[in-house]
Amino acid sequence: MQDEAFFKELLTIFKGECREHVQTMTQGLDDLEQNMNSEKQIEIAEVVHRSAHSLKGAARTIGLVDVEPICQSLETTFGIFMRQKLTIPSEIFNKFHTAVKLLSVLLESINSEGKTEGEKSELMRIVEEISSQMVQYRK
């Protein structure tokens, strides 16, 4: 239904948007770690959460079905930070950073057909670990 040129343009826009979200999430994770267990934590979590959510929506828009569950999982775990003040060990934060890093690599690997070429099993594994560890903090 859409012509190729437009799709290419859309992909470029999408990649730009991805970088923005990755940037927001990375920055947000740093801020989060420094502001654990405070009012500020909840504020920051909201920003990070929205970023993951928007990224999910954008991925869906261009038909990147395999990125969607990863974003969904991140969105859910960020959601936990929004609901109550927490103290999370830096070990989990490291995992979050790795996940975002791997996600950005994966998104950069999108080819002209709109498919990811990078490896995502490692990313999936980490995201899963994060959510299983974060479950205990969920109210």
Partner: peptide, 11 residues
């Protein structure tokens, strides 16, 4: 808010 979705919708 997502520029990708926005562009697509506009198109």
């Amino acid at each position: 808010d997502s520029i990708t979705s926005r562009t697509l919708l506009k198109n």
